[in-house]
Every structure is written in C-alpha cells, then in structure tokens.
C-alpha cells in the first residue's frame, strides 16, 4: 500500500523535462516536499501524476497505475491543487467544494463533511461568496478544500501556499499534515519555501534538471553541496533558538 514511482519520463514534444524519476516506495502517511529551482521539472512531475500530462514509466498508487484510473478512481484518489486558479467564475466557494464531493460522498454525510472542511480551513465566512470576489489566497484555500473534502489517498499540491501570508501558510501546512496523518494519505508538496518543508515534511525530493538530485530526510538532502547544485546558492541548514531547522542563504552563486 504505497505510492510507487519508477523511471518516470515526461516530455513536451521532443524536449524531455523529466528524464527518469526513480524513488523508493512512498509509504501512506508521508508528506513529501518536492524541491528544486524553477524549471527543474517539479510542476511537470506533479501534472503527470495528476493526469494533465502523459508520462512514461510506472506511477502506481496501491498497485493501480495512475494513468489507467477511471473517472471515479481519479475523483476518489487524487487531490490536485494547481498553481494557477481561474479568476472569473461566479460559482460560490461552497459549490466548488460541493461539486467535487457530490458524486463521491453519500447525501447523508455530505453536508457535514463539507461543513467540517470549511470550518477546519477557517474559510466558512467565504462559503457563500462567488469565486470572482475572492483574493488569490482565498481561492487557493477553496481549491485546497475541494481536494480535502474528498479525502484522497494522494495529494498533489503545486505551491498551495504561494499566495498566502505567513499565518495562512502555517494553517494550510498544519491542515495538510493533519489530513495526511489522520487519513493515512500521501502528499507531494511543491514549495519554494524550504523552511515550511523543513518544518512539516517527512521527506524531501530534490530535483535538478529533470532528475532526482537527492532523496531522503530534509537534513540529509539539503546539504550545502546539494543546495549549491540545485539552487545555485551558498546556503546552509542550521537550528534556530527554538531548535527548528531553518535555511540560511549566504549568497547567490
């Protein structure tokens, strides 16, 4: 029962973006940070798993190949939160979440489940507002709610905190962490915020030019050498006065 990713290749036309991603099986209950500089292939990787790009190789969740999942299986198992969200819709936030839950959760428990997600993400006050009245960050929260409401086995989160302020970033990561722990789901989280990843993720996958540069615990992966290679910075991980590991960037290389 795990996420298996072997030799994943994705190309745009002739240009190969991912050239063979191999990872050890990812256990349920893992929150994995996908790190790497812009253009390293993080979003492409996640899009491939979400069904937006075709991939070669094996990507299976509990022995079901992601590419072969039917609509119901996708709806049930995959919670994808993309980087960019549409602006103009007049759908209510409640409807965005409800539409995803509608065919999945039986009527009796649907209302409670939706209510619970809105309350937990602290966005109940937005529920009856149309999406076009929400800010970028608020839309991101609704999009996350649309994923969480389905209790998917696999979360694919493409910078879900990019439009959020510090408080909301912590709230969102806390909510994802809780969800992963309680439901035993697996989450791949793309982020440029290494401190958030250090704080909440069990595992780090550092991508560089379409390949895995390092894979393992954050402290093992984010060595000065790897950071220099992946991000072109002179940086180090140290512990703050409260004992949390944080990244300190000394200079760009």
């Amino acid at each position: 029962m795990s996420l298996l990713l072997q030799n994943i290749r994705i190309a745009y036309g002739k240009k190969e973006i991912l050239s063979g991603i191999n990872l050890d099986p990812i256990k349920p209950g893992s929150l994995v940070a996908l790190l790497g500089q812009n253009g390293a292939g993080k979003s492409t990787f996640v899009k491939g798993l979400a069904g937006l790009k075709s991939y070669q190789g094996t990507a299976s969740l509990d022995d079901i190949e992601l590419a072969n999942m039917d609509q119901h299986q996708r709806l049930k198992n995959i919670g994808y939160v993309p980087q960019s969200l549409p602006q103009g819709s007049s759908l209510l936030a409640y409807e965005v979440v409800k539409s995803a839950a509608a065919s999945l959760i039986d009527k009796a428990s649907q209302d409670d489940r939706i209510e619970d997600v809105f309350q937990r993400l602290k966005i109940a006050h937005l529920a009856l507002l149309p999406m076009h009245k929400l800010s970028g960050g608020q839309r991101q929260m609704v999009s996350l709610a649309q994923a969480i409401v389905r209790k998917p086995k696999l979360y694919l989160l493409d910078e879900p905190t990019s439009a959020l302020d510090l408080n909301w970033q912590m709230q969102v990561l806390k909510a994802i962490r809780e969800e992963v722990d309680q439901q035993g789901s697996t989450a791949l989280l793309i982020s440029h915020d290494i401190n958030l990843a250090l704080r909440y993720c069990d595992q780090v996958v550092l991508l560089n030019q379409g390949k895995v540069l390092a894979n393992g615990t954050a402290l093992d992966c984010l060595t000065p050498e790897n950071l220099a290679q992946a991000y072109k910075v002179d940086a180090r991980i140290e512990r703050c006065s409260k004992g949390h590991p944080i990244i300190l960037v000394d200079s760009a290389l």
């Binding site: 899009k47 979400a50 996708r74 709806l75 995959i78 994808y80 993309p82 409807e95 995803a100 649309q146």
Partner: peptide
C-alpha cells in the same frame, strides 16, 4: 451540468478529477 460546473471551478482540477 456537473462536469461543466467542475470545469468552471478550474480546468486543471476538473481534468485531475477525471473529467475528459
């Protein structure tokens, strides 16, 4: 109408939820 509502909630999300 359900698929179209999902499409309006975001094309990429709709696709990831199995909407063709």
């Amino acid at each position: 109408s359900w698929s179209m509502t999902l499409l309006r909630s975001g094309e990429e999300q709709a696709q990831s939820m199995g909407i063709n």
